[in-house]
Amino acid sequence: MDIAVADYEESLGGDLKGMKIGIPKEYRIEGMPVEIETLWDEGASWLMAAGAEIVEISLPHTKYALPAYYIVAPAEASSNLARYDGVRYGLRVEGDTPQALYENTRGEGFGAEVKRRVLIGTYVLSAGYYDAYYLQAQKVRTRIAQDFHDAWQTVDAILTPTTPSAAFAQGEKMDDPIAMYLNDVLTVPASMAGLPAISVPSGLSGEGLPLGLHVIGRPFDEATVFKVGQTLEDAAEFSTRPRIMAGGS
């Protein structure tokens, strides 16, 4: 990218006077735990105390970002992962024909989730379905990026929670791919629009687990993202340590 890398450390410090921070109402998703909403409100008040103005904004296509992602990402993955054929590098599971060699290698070499996504990707790119799925998802992606572009006319950064829950137990959600995908419901929109974003540990859940707040910025404005992120970090004074830690917590 032909854009100079800023001195990000240099950009830290100072107050947020004159800065406007957007709170997107569509991120108050159904079923979000109260403790996460509370932390989010608290984060906004920290930024306000540092001199920022808090503005409610609307990003109308937020709810479509995750389903659009689950077309675009598998489509690209099915193409990118086509290279793993057992011929040039990596695992090889023999077969009588080249076709059998590829199928055996990929059948054994890929795990369940990778196979699922490659198959979804292959389907949405296949003749007859391309327009309905892939093209529509890419148009929705334009809409999502436009939402953010509109928001930047009034705000300098956007504050949201990072995730709709704290960490869950190993094995949970494994039999329900969509429940697993919902972990990323608050992070995917910025990904779809290519924007810089940071998660900063800001509080603990009722069960004693860390929760993050999420700051999204304008394209290539990492400096503002770091500056707002550090303001949250300073105010949160997050100092609890995990139970399992080298040397003991």
Binding site: T163, A167, T187, S191, P196, S199, P201, P219, P242
Partner: peptide
Amino acid sequence: TDTGGSIRQPGSFCGIVGMKPTYGR
């Protein structure tokens, strides 16, 4: 690396900072 949240979500779950820069940075 972060495609849909793969830096920020584990950062949040583990109580540390995770930063995804602009696409292309």
